[in-house]
Design a binder for these strands. Structure first.
Length: 198
DNA sequence: GCGACAG
DNA sequence: ATCTTGTCGC
C-alpha cells in the first residue's frame, strides 16, 4: 500500500519531468543502432534486459540487471516500479534511440515511463505500449491518434501504442509504428523471460 | 457512486 | 506483469 501523500508527491515530480520533455523531430530513418528495454518478474525479483541492435544486420548484444522490486504497480506510476532496473540494464549500451515498454507522454500527466527515462538520461526515447492508459482514439487520414486534452500525444498502429518519450516527435512515432512491432523489443521480452528461468 | 486503469 | 492447456482465428 502506498500512502496518498507519497503519490501526490510523485505527481509533482511527474509534472516536473513533463515540463522537461523535449519534443522535436529526430528522424528515426537515420537510426542505425536502436535499443529496447523490458522487464519480467518472479515474485519480488525483477529481471530487466536492455538490447542494442544494428538495424541493418540485425546483430545485437544485451545487458541484464536483476534486483528486488517492492513498489507496487499503480496505473500512472509504473516508473516507480520499473524505471530503476531498466536504467541499470541499459547504461553503457551503444545506440541513439531507446524504445521503452510502456507509454511516453500518452499519460495523465504526460509523464509515462518512457518520458521519465528519456528526461533522466537526457536521451531520445519512444514509448511502445500494448494497451491504452489514457486519451481518446481519433482517426485522421489513415492514422489513429491518441488525443489527450485536445492534443495529439501518441499514435496507434495495429494493437500497439507509440508515444514520444523525449527528444523525438509524433512523426518519429508514426515512422516507427509503420515498421510494425520493433524487433528489438521482441528480443528484449524474450531474453527477459529466458533469464528469469535461470 | 461508477467506470478506467501502461506493466 | 503473472498464474496456465488447449484452442479459435487470421
Amino acid at each position: 500500500m502506498v500512502e496518498k501523500h507519497l503519490l501526490e508527491f510523485l505527481e509533482k515530480l511527474q509534472f516536473l519531468i513533463a515540463k522537461n520533455v523535449k519534443i522535436s523531430h529526430y528522424g528515426i530513418e537515420n537510426v542505425k543502432k536502436i535499443c529496447g528495454v523490458d522487464i519480467a518478474y518472479k515474485g519480488n525479483l525483477g529481471f530487466s534486459v536492455g538490447v542494442s541492435m544494428d538495424i541493418n544486420s540485425g546483430d545485437y548484444n544485451y545487458k541484464s540487471y536483476v534486483g528486488e522490486v517492492n513498489f507496487p504497480y499503480i496505473p500512472g506510476f509504473l516508473f516507480m516500479r520499473e524505471a530503476p532496473l531498466m536504467i541499470k540494464a541499459i547504461e553503457g549500451l551503444d545506440c541513439h534511440l531507446l524504445l521503452v515498454d510502456g507509454h511516453g507522454i500518452a499519460h495523465p500527466r504526460k509523464s509515462g515511463i518512457a518520458a521519465v527515462i528519456g528526461v533522466l538520461l537526457d536521451f531520445p526515447t519512444i514509448g511502445v505500449a500494448k494497451s491504452r492508459l489514457t486519451g481518446d482514439l481519433v482517426n485522421e487520414s489513415e492514422i489513429t491518434y491518441v488525443y489527450l486534452n485536445g492534443e495529439k500525444v501518441g499514435v496507434k498502429f495495429g494493437r500497439y501504442f507509440y508515444s514520444p518519450g523525449n527528444k523525438v516527435d509524433l512523426q518519429d512515432c508514426i515512422e516507427l509504428g509503420k515498421r510494425g512491432y520493433p524487433k528489438v523489443l521482441k528480443i528484449a521480452d524474450m531474453l527477459t523471460k529466458k533469464i528469469k528461468k535461470e
